[in-house]
Nucleic acid binder design. Structure first.
Lengths: 340, 340
DNA sequence: ATGAAAGCGCTAACAC
DNA sequence: GTGTTAGCGCTTTCAT
């Protein structure tokens, strides 16, 4: 059952390996009789094509790597799911690679000493800068995910973070909120992601004629929900006053929710809160989260399209694609109250 | 840079392929001079060994598949992370396979028409029964994860669900709760997971002299947080009274939390709630969740050990291993109040 | 439409 | 210690 080779099938069926191969791969020009005879031999032997052999011969592995910090983070897990499903329909399997959001991990990834394991890679860098990624100059087709500064030579897919941050901040402004904070960005070494979201947040405030107040920027020692609980809780205890919070991501928003609730501050009555990513759980927190929802399906589809183009020979300069996002309004920031 | 072959290195260095191969694989018996000469050739050519070639020759792929329903579910995502890290230290990479918790998806998985892509598989079935898994009779080394009824021929790793459910229910009883419900199991087609957890829950109640009340079993149309919001909310609205809820998993607990809070019912004051899995977010919900915490590291390590034994020839009957769990006490069910 | 033979890049016996 | 020679299982020209 296990070690059945193409050869064995050919012998049983009394045909050449070529013919068996043709049948296995559904090659059109095979006579029905042949096909049936070969198929019978395949069935009786329980033959299963050996991928490694095929892959060595074709030079294609059918595998793509999906690399990011940590699949335990809901956004990445949900991204992995979408990518994995999209890849499947295109005939690819996904190999998971985690970098732990460390420079070391990301370097190991791009400098990997082995070749030919995967046909291409989707990579969302956490810390690596544009220059270092560019220097990489590997032969492995690569598409970048997310807003990390991308070298001009590489393809990249992201949503418009500045615009989205502007929109969600404007949503808060429309509800009459005026002291709007931003929470959950890095304490030091601001990521490009945080930078762009803060830029959009400031842009909305300024357009509304509000001077951004730097004390309303609440960084987090750890980029996690627990980190946000600490940060936001600490800020409140230190006397910081605000009536809304734009959080860097849904985990930070969940942390902020807890920090507020621990202190008996009502959400959204006293403080409105928004998240980012629209992870599944953001719909069932209490209150549920108003958040930026990236079009993950489009993100995955676009990234895979670009990658496959690279894998099949495209060699132009980097394409930078923007996919859609929308603001999902839920309880934590319900928007202007309807007039009754 | 891309198409450098072992052969090319050998020619440049003026040695045989065997020698180059020895150097690449750190074979001990190579003279230092040779090694250095070859290494120089490797560097100038930028040679990277082609995995497919090596794998075809050795018959090993270095890949293991990790299969479960949906990586978008936090428990699975966190499991994937732990398995992926553990596998890495053992020299394996992880290929993600999702079944969408459908029979169809699980069948496709075990009946996969290709062979040799992965050396082995870790599989947590959702719907497939013991008999069907056994019938599979594949040549692929396989270790089952979780409490699905496992055929005697197969290895399996799980925690003691009955014991854990008993413990966490007893924890509630120790706080003086008497009308304890169970929530979040399947509406029809009870999974083995739910069955065992309910068994442990009933066992604890009976030992405490409480007759299990079937109306306190609150099934969920969808096994998700949103499903639990509906189910628990509906039960409350229908007039069901209880002072504690053992939830099938953390997502159900999060849903229960929301359903209770929506109705102004205090947790843990009015109703205590417990979860299962100890997903990262269970520590930052408000209130945070008392939950069953499986030893994921041990689970992954054990599963990989069993799998590697199978891959390297072990052919005995199925081993069924139990790994540790503990009850993590948090705010949603704080336990007996300390006497001041 | 089918067959024969030459690789794909590497490792593993077995000689030297 | 190092080189030679076969394969690993499959696909793919090139004939027929």
């Amino acid at each position: 059952m296990g070690g059945v080779r193409l050869q064995d099938v050919a012998e049983l069926a009394g045909v050449s390996m070529k013919t068996v191969s043709n049948v296995v791969r559904d090659y059109p020009h095979v006579s029905p009789r042949m096909r049936e005879k070969v198929q019978r031999a395949i069935d009786t032997l329980g033959y299963k094509p050996n991928m490694m052999g095929r892959r060595l011969a074709t030079g294609k592995t059918g595998l793509i790597a999906l690399a990011f910090a940590d699949v335990g983070i809901p956004y990445f897990a949900e991204l992995a799911r979408v990518v994995s499903r999209a890849a499947e329909t295109l005939g690819y399997r996904v190999l998971l690679e985690e970098t732990d959001a460390t420079l070391e991990g990301e370097r190991a990834l791009v400098a990997t000493s082995e070749a030919g394991l995967v046909d291409g890679m989707l990579f969302q860098p956490s810390v690596m800068g544009s220059t270092e990624i560019a220097r990489h100059r590997s032969d492995l087709p690569l598409v970048l995910l997310g807003e990390t500064a991308a070298p001009l030579t590489m393809d990249r897919v992201m949503i418009d973070n500045v615009a989205a941050a502007d929109e969600i901040t404007s949503h808060l402004l429309a509800s009459g909120r005026r002291r709007i904070g931003f929470a959950g960005h890095e304490l030091n070494g601001l990521s490009e992601t945080s930078r762009q979201r803060i830029a959009g947040y400031q842009q909305a405030l300024e357009r509304a004629g509000i001077a951004p107040d730097p004390t309303l920027l609440i960084p987090s020692a750890a980029i996690s929900a627990a980190g946000a609980v600490e940060a936001v809780g600490g800020a409140i205890d230190a006397g910081l006053g605000f009536d809304a919070l734009v959080c860097r991501d849904d985990l930070a928003a969940i942390g902020a929710l807890r920090a507020l609730q621990e202190r008996g501050i009502g959400v959204p009555t006293d403080v409105e809160v928004t998240g980012w990513d629209d992870i599944r759980l953001s719909a069932v927190t209490f209150p549920s989260l108003t958040t930026v929802s990236p079009d993950l399906d489009a993100l995955a589809a676009t990234a895979l399209r670009l990658l496959i183009e690279r894998m099949t020979g495209f060699d132009g300069t980097g394409r930078h694609e923007i996919v859609a996002h929308r603001i999902v309004v839920r309880e934590s920031a319900p928007g202007p109250v309807a007039v009754h």
